[in-house]
Each structure stands twice: as structure tokens, then as C-alpha cells.
Nucleic acid binder design. Structure first.
Lengths: 219, 219
DNA sequence: GATACAACTGCATATTTGTGTGGTTTTTAT
DNA sequence: ATAAAAACCACACAAATATGCAGTTGTATC
């Protein structure tokens, strides 16, 4: 079974620290169902080797010499958009986390993660999950909730569907006549709706209305 | 030690299924460091009981009769904004997950989660984490990456600082004269900048420019 | 010292917008 | 049934905008 390719998750490792890299490789290759198909000291060599190579999951250190792990994720995703990359890091620092996730990493673990949990995480990535330490998950969620909170504020600014349609058309760069034509109404009616939008949003120009509406998630 | 309040995480359970509720209560009360301080069949009774009660973490079923778990989260957060709520669910369904998170839940577990992992998750919540199954984490991350991808596209749309200033003033509802006064430049210069903005963003009106800029995170 | 770019100024003018005032008709909720 | 609310239409006019053209000045890169 150990050599049955159908049951193997093919893992590559990019990590400059020899001890950690070899430890990870041994752990992975020594576990049933996992196969370490490449170890790299630098992103550069990994990226050269990547094209055509059959890799399921990459473990990538974030603090690498030369091309950083974050840059590495971007470039790897350009070469193989489908590849799944799990970041490993010593820091649990806010900005770096988000940079990595935005770059395309699909999970984020701190290096002190115990071996069993690491293997589990690799499997989760392979199966479409996004393992992360729960501190990081909390940061991600906090951002979500902030965005959600803003959307609640808009109870006062209730626009009717028609008004939203008009406002949206405006934001697309249509002028009154074009909006009228698109909605099969007269220009004066468009004018009327815009008047009401202005009064509801407490604004006096298209730009201000559009800005407010977008920032509050109305359109 | 079992009765040392300093080391106890106080947990409340809201769950309509008797077997599950009692099972959870037994698990929690039977584990060192955890204390089940309340079990509720319905959100309504939980919410009545909540004010003044000392609860660290709430386990809340999402599919409750009467007030749903999601509504329950919202109301509980209104009463005790600091309370941490961990959602339990049978579904791992996209929209429900996001609704719950946006409502203020700070973690999300499927009911089949093994007892030990559940206890661990409660502790993580207590310590400020956001445990979630990694499928859910992936959904959250996917959304992030979509947002991030949009921001990359803007390389072509590079506006100078001055142009951004002007555009931002526009989005605040200022007209050309007001912008000119604010930036100590002439109206014609404002006009000039706006011309350049339009040509860089490929638009032909204030509204479209403002909409595009905001949606792409330029301003 | 040349080329490029950002930032600036000026003027002309057709088109578009914002706002005033005054309505009718159709849905929706009580 | 009746009162709101939403959606519709019209006319008028000052103010603001979009876009044409034609420049100067300062700063940075090659």
C-alpha cells in the first residue's frame, strides 16, 4: 500500500532550515498515504522545478531568503493555478497572514504545530479545506464581521428597488437619457428618482451618491 | 481543582435535541476545566436568562425552532456584546455559514465533530481563537482571495497622488470649484486632472470614475 | 542635456445636471 | 376602503460638467 500511487498525497517542501526541511520530509515520506516528491531550499529552485511536476500540496516557509514565501505563492499560482499551498511560519502576524492568503495560499500553520496535526492539515488541504490556526481564523472572521456591520447601518438609507437600479446605472456611467431608455421611463422620471436618492442619502451630486452607496454596500 | 472557578470555562448550550444537549452537558461538566452553566431548549429562554449571567462560551445549534440560531446570535450579541458563540450545525452550507459569521458567531463546527475536538474548540474560542472546520475556512478564504484578485488588476489604472486627491474630493460631493479651493489650484487644473482620470480609468463621467475607483480600492 | 512625466493654467462651448414646482397612476399595507 | 408608498410624467432654468485646444514649469531618469 505504501507505494500505491492512488493513495498518495504528493507533497513538496520549500524551507531553508535544513533540520526542519529534512524533518518534514522524513515525517511525510514515512507516513502511509503521503509522499514527499521534492524538497527545496529556495523558492527559485522550486519554481524552476514546478512546471509539469505532479504536486498536490506544497508546504512553504514564509520567511525565505531571496524570493519570499509570499512572492513564491504568487509565482507558483501563475505557473500552476490549481496548486494548493500551505504556509508555514514562525510569526502569527496580522499583515503577513493576509498577504499570504491574498497571494493565494490556502492555509496557514505555525511551525510549532505538532506533526500529527500537520499531516492532518495536509490532508485537509488535499481534500479542499483550509486549515489554519484558530487565532488566524479569528482575524479573518473579524474582518468579515466588520464588513457585515457596515451593511447593517443602512436601515435609514432605504432605497426602493427602482432607485437602486437608477443609482447602479449611474455608477456604470450612464447619463439620464441612457438610464431612461434602459428602464423604459422618461428622463424626468429618472430625474425624479435621483432627487429622491439624493434626499434619502443626504447628498447633492451623482459622485457623492454613488460613493456613499458603494461604500455602504447598497449597490 | 474541579471546582476552582479560576480554571473553569463557563459554557452554555442551546440545542433542541435532548440527546445531543444532555450529551454535550455531560461531556462539558465531566471534563476538568469546563463547566456547563446552563442548557436551553430554545433561544427564547436562553435570551431571557442571559442578562447578568456569567457565561464564557455558548454552543448554539443553528437549526432551532422559534428564533433561529442566527437570530439568536444577533440578539445575544446585543445583550452581551462580549459573549463568544460557537455555532453547531448539521449542514455545512455556504450561505448559512456566512450569515452566522456575519451575525457575530466566532466559530462554526459540524455536529459530527468528535468530543475531544469540541472541547479543544471551546478552549480556543475562550482564548480568542475561531475554530472552524477547514471546509468552512476554505470558503471564507476563497472570498478573501476574490477580493484580493480585484485589487491586483489596478496596475494599469495608476493614478497620481494628485489625481487620487481630486477623485476623492469628488466622491465627497465637492464640485470643481470646491476642489480647486481645497487644493489651492485653479478650476481648470481640476478639470485637467479629471480629464486624465477619465482617460486612465476609461470612463466618461464622475459617477463611473468614482464607482470604479471605489470598487477597485483606489480610493 | 534630452526625454518623460507630473502638476499646473487658460479659454470656449455644447451637453448634462440639480432643483424648483406641479401633477397622475399603481402597489402595498392597514 | 383608504391611506401611504412607490413609480410615473412634465416644464423651466441656472449651474455644473465634459471635452475640444494650447500651453508653462518643475523633477526625475537616462
Amino acid at each position: 500500500m505504501k507505494n500505491d500511487k492512488n493513495y498518495m498525497i504528493k507533497v513538496a517542501i520549500v524551507e531553508d532550515n535544513n533540520t526542519i526541511r529534512e524533518g518534514l520530509a522524513a515525517l511525510i515520506s514515512g507516513t502511509n498515504g503521503y509522499d514527499c516528491v521534492g524538497t527545496y531550499i529556495k523558492c527559485e529552485t522550486f519554481l524552476e522545478d514546478l512546471p509539469g511536476k505532479d504536486i498536490d500540496v506544497v508546504l512553504m516557509d514564509i520567511g525565505l531568503p531571496g524570493i519570499s514565501g509570499i512572492e513564491g505563492v504568487k509565482k507558483a499560482k501563475e505557473i500552476e493555478p490549481g496548486i494548493d499551498i500551505l504556509m508555514l511560519t514562525v510569526y502569527e502576524d496580522n499583515s503577513v497572514v493576509f498577504e499570504a492568503l491574498c497571494a493565494g495560499a490556502c492555509g496557514y500553520l505555525v511551525k510549532k504545530t505538532p506533526p500529527l496535526r500537520l499531516l492532518e492539515a495536509i490532508k485537509e488541504v488535499y481534500e479542499g479545506g483550509s486549515p489554519m490556526s484558530s487565532n488566524i481564523a479569528r482575524q479573518v472572521i473579524t474582518l468579515f464581521q466588520q464588513n457585515a456591520a457596515i451593511e447593517q447601518e443602512n436601515e435609514e438609507y432605504k432605497l426602493t428597488n427602482r432607485e437602486k437600479e437608477v443609482l447602479f446605472k449611474l455608477s456604470e456611467g450612464n447619463n439620464y437619457q441612457e438610464i431612461a431608455d434602459a428602464l423604459f421611463i422618461s428622463v424626468d422620471t429618472v430625474r425624479h428618482h435621483i432627487r429622491n436618492i439624493y434626499s434619502k442619502l443626504h447628498v447633492h451630486s451623482q459622485s457623492e451618491a454613488v460613493a456613499k452607496a458603494i461604500r455602504r454596500g447598497i449597490i
